[in-house]
């Protein structure tokens, strides 16, 4: 290839990629930032400090943090189970994990309503808990519902990152540790975990990004603006309101999401760089 005359193909491909990248990815983001500041900084600050926005930011961060925590735990369990053990139904479990990937989030949200809503299958059970313990738990149209929907949608991210890495690693080191009398958790902590820590962190980042950006599933289970709306729902509500000011506000709130996304991207880059460095060392 080296000695060949410069071909037009690479130039063409690079050109196409750059145009696509700019039109599809960069331009829309720039427009979001531009539109959010179009009517001055004062309106921008007003938009992002509005009670509805702050409430939405709070709900988004709560839902994303809990989703990340829960999915880290269950993702680790599932990946560990699938890669390190032989059992009946392993393949089935592996397929089930992917359900949130293949089902539209809106349908997931609706399914939650059907299951936990007023007419839902689990409602008698929740009512029983509420009357027995004097609690007031409501899963649908409330923050817990938003959290559940977010967990559901982002469930596969961490385990899907971990499984190939853990599979490639094999079981020999774990068996070696077991031969020397180490027990399950010690083996995980000292032998398995060092292998997967960067992958896990990477999965957590992807999971967080997806959790913050989730729209469809939370749209189905969240109906109260200023209480259970997340940032994405708030953007949608502002935009749909249709007033000139509210559209600018929608862009301002969107810019918050963009900033979070860029921050996550940067963290991801750093993690990848660090991971590569430790691999080489």
């Amino acid at each position: 290839m080296k000695n060949q005359k410069k071909s037009i193909v690479p130039t063409l491909l690079i050109g196409i990629s750059v145009v696509f990248f700019v039109v599809m990815l960069v331009l829309p983001l720039v427009i979001v930032l531009y539109r959010s500041l179009k009517d001055g900084l004062a309106l921008y600050v007003k938009a992002i400090t509005a009670p509805n926005t702050l409430s939405a930011l709070r709900v988004t961060l709560i839902a994303a943090s809990i989703a990340v925590l829960v999915n880290t735990f269950f993702g680790l369990c599932a990946a560990w189970l699938i890669t390190k053990f032989e059992f009946r139904g392993r393949q089935v479990l592996s397929t089930l994990i992917d359900i949130p990937f293949s089902i539209s989030p809106v349908i997931a949200g609706l399914a939650f309503i059907m299951t936990f809503g007023r007419m839902g299958w689990a409602t008698p059970f929740i009512d029983w808990i509420n009357s027995t313990f004097g609690t007031d738990i409501a899963l649908v149209f409330s923050v817990p519902g938003v959290v559940l929907a977010t967990i559901f949608v982002t469930f596969p991210f961490i385990s899907r990152e971990l499984i190939p890495v853990m599979q490639a690693q094999g079981n020999a080191e774990e068996e070696a540790a077991a031969m020397m009398g180490a027990k399950g958790f010690t083996i995980f902590r000292k032998v398995t975990f060092p292998h997967i820590r960067w992958t896990l962190l990477y999965g957590i980042i992807l999971c967080a990004a997806r959790a913050i950006g989730e729209f469809g599933a939370v749209y189905a289970v969240s109906k109260t603006r200023g209480q259970t709306f997340t940032l994405t729902l708030e953007v949608d509500a502002l935009y749909m309101a249709g007033g000139a000011d509210s559209i600018t506000q929608a862009f301002a709130v969107s810019s918050l999401l963009v900033i979070i996304a860029v921050a996550i991207l940067l963290i991801k880059q750093v993690v990848e760089y660090r991971a590569k460095r430790t691999e080489e060392a």
Binding site: A172, A176, A177, M179
Partner: peptide, 21 residues
């Protein structure tokens, strides 16, 4: 008796040394 309590030393094929130790 579980593997770890049989008093056996095991040298694995490809050794299975702990890479991060």
């Amino acid at each position: 008796v579980p593997a770890g309590e049989r008093g056996i030393g095991f040298v694995f094929q490809n050794y299975a040394l702990f890479r991060y130790m």
